[in-house]
Simulated scan of single mutants.
Amino acid sequence: MAVSIAERAGTLWLTLLRPPVNAIDLEMVESVTRIVEETKPDHPIVLTGKGKSFSAGIDTTAFAAYSKDQRRDMVLGITRMVCALVCHPAPVVAAINGHALGGGLVLALTADYRVAGAPDAKFGLTEAKAGVPFPIGAVEVIRHEIPAPLLRNLTLTSRIINQDALLEAGLIDQVSQPDNVLIAASQALHVLKGQPGFRAVKRQVRGLLQARLTALVEKGDDPFLKAFGAA
């Protein structure tokens, strides 16, 4: 099973579950998407990873073994997955418990609030180094969430940074002790969901990204499918 879920007091706790580094494969993409899309719109979500990694990004070994159709499903599925998370009406909080690289960092950036508790963890957008482009949905997320100069630097150099640099850049909202990250995420979520205007304001401030991702899902295409060996 690529993910685990638990419901506590009306909150869905969604844990990425592919040891040792929770690398993203097609099963995980489809599972996360289905779970989020089926979650009631008034139920908040906490997204985290099992063990010492949030997610190290795409499982390139699994992806290399996929058929062309599976690769297409994976690339388009990533756009649908990030769309589901960004468009969820209730608060989504990322409890970043460890390394978040490539698609793992993109997943964290879909959240409305991000808590990190991994002072030794590595963060980066290393697709150029890995030899693959970003799915179009991931591009939309990072363009909206990362300031342009930092985005250029992170993506074109594959530079690795730590959580302090993420906090300074405003890409995460809070740091906690490693053994306290889930509690801190829960506390942050309590504050978010207690605001009566949260859903309306989320539509205002994240509506452009929501609309763009929704349009891409409806289009069902990606201009870089050929580069993924999926066209």
Rank of each mutant, 00 (worst) to 15 (best):
G49N: 14
I136R: 02
P196T: 09
L151A: 13
F228T: 04
N97H: 03
L208N: 12
G194R: 05
L109G: 00
A9H: 00
V191K: 07
I142K: 04
V217C: 12
R152G: 06
A188I: 11
T39C: 15
L101A: 08
V175G: 00
G104R: 02
E7K: 00
L85Y: 01
E140M: 15
V92D: 14
M1C: 11
D59M: 11
R114G: 04
I58L: 12
S67C: 04
L150R: 11
T11W: 11
G137Q: 01
K40L: 14
R72L: 01
R143H: 12
I96A: 01
R114L: 04
L109M: 02
P119I: 04
G220S: 06
L156Y: 05
D173I: 08
F228Y: 05
L101F: 03
A148T: 05
L26H: 01
V92G: 09
K68T: 13
A148V: 11
L225R: 02
L225M: 10
I35S: 00
C87L: 06
P41L: 14
L105F: 09
D69S: 07
Q70L: 03
E127W: 03
A211Q: 14
G170P: 03
D221I: 04
S53C: 08
V201Q: 05
G51N: 14
H190C: 09
V92Q: 08
V82D: 09
E218S: 15
F198G: 06
V3N: 15
N180L: 07
P223Q: 06
L101K: 02
L26W: 01
V32R: 04
G10W: 05
R8L: 11
M74Y: 10
L26M: 11
V201S: 11
A231N: 08
V21D: 13
T33H: 08
V106Y: 06
